[in-house]
Design a protein around this nucleic acid. Structure first.
Length: 279
DNA sequence: CCTGGGGGTAGGG
DNA sequence: CCCTACCCCCAGG
């Protein structure tokens, strides 16, 4: 009523990103207080930051190609990396790379009721091409009664961080394969460079806040692989992102070793090719 | 107090 | 019609 809606500016978003990169997710107050970001976020509350981050974490899932390996039989995700058809590298994929935050860290405990359903639906459907929101919705609707606004809830829930790890991973594996960032030569880092903060030529193990992470080996391997890449090319960005992704995945993994394998796979691919598709 | 999560509403395709 | 962006409220730590 008294708030005509204050759209977030690029500066604000960038500040938020930077803040999260520095302090980690969940330190909204710290970020907001930080004199470095305060000038940009002075008009935003920590709650606003949190909400905005939640929104930014929503990278619309895309489905198109049918090149996917369903691998029905085991829970082990089958490393759905981009298929060899990449021989001719995509012309000039827009960088859009601002999509990185999938943030979790909170995806370890308390699994909301819906997540189980979602996971169940996706598992049951197991469509080669992936299941979109509607499919999942249908599946669930046919099995039990859902509130009228369930679609939205589902829609949000699916792409929201913090969703049950397995569900997220599965979701990512199955239908969000070719989503996030793809890296092209120098085409990237040219426009807006949405990464003002994490531009380390040598990807180290970024802010290891306080997670124990069951993947020391992976991180090492990751660092190594990433290091090679960065050394060989100027793809430090990719490497850094990859490391990040690995940590993320590792953190999500609770008891699934295949996830760690996936992480390794990604890094190996990363060191060889250039096109790395992660969710 | 701060954070995370649910939900409502307005605007755009 | 559906989806996205912002905002508000509530419960837990």
């Amino acid at each position: 009523m008294g708030n005509p809606k204050q759209k977030w500016t690029a500066e604000e978003e960038e500040a938020l990103r930077a803040g999260v990169a520095k302090h980690g997710t969940g330190k909204w107050k710290n970020i907001q207080r930080d004199p470095e970001f305060n000038p940009f976020l002075f008009s935003r509350s920590n709650i606003d930051l949190k909400d905005k981050w939640r929104n930014m974490s929503v990278s619309a899932p895309r489905e198109k190609s049918r090149t996917l390996k369903p691998k029905a039989g085991s829970d082990a995700p089958a490393v759905p990396l981009s298929t060899p058809q990449t021989s001719a590298l995509p012309a000039a994929v827009p960088i859009d790379a601002s999509a990185d935050p999938i943030t979790d860290e909170s995806a370890r405990s308390s699994a909301p009721k819906y997540n189980a359903l979602i996971f169940e639906a996706i598992s049951a459907l197991k469509e080669p091409n992936g299941s979109d929101v509607s499919a999942i919705l249908s599946y669930i609707e046919q099995r039990l009664e859902v509130p009228p606004n369930f679609r939205r809830l589902l829609s949000s829930r699916l792409r929201r961080p913090g969703c049950n790890a397995k569900a997220v991973v599965h979701y990512i594996m199955i239908l969000q394969v070719q989503n996030c960032f793809k890296v092209k030569e120098d085409a990237s880092l040219g426009t807006k460079t949405p990464n003002p903060k994490q531009k380390d030529t040598r990807p180290k193990l970024l802010h290891s806040t306080n997670d124990v992470s069951p993947a020391d080996t992976v991180q090492e391997a990751a660092a190594a692989a990433a290091g090679q890449v960065a050394d060989a090319e100027n793809k430090s960005f990719v490497a850094a992102e990859a490391v990040k992704e690995a940590e993320r995945v590792s953190r999500m993994a609770e008891d699934t070793d295949s996830l760690l394998q996936l992480a390794k796979e990604i890094f190996e691919r990363c060191s060889r090719g250039e096109i790395v598709v992660v969710a």
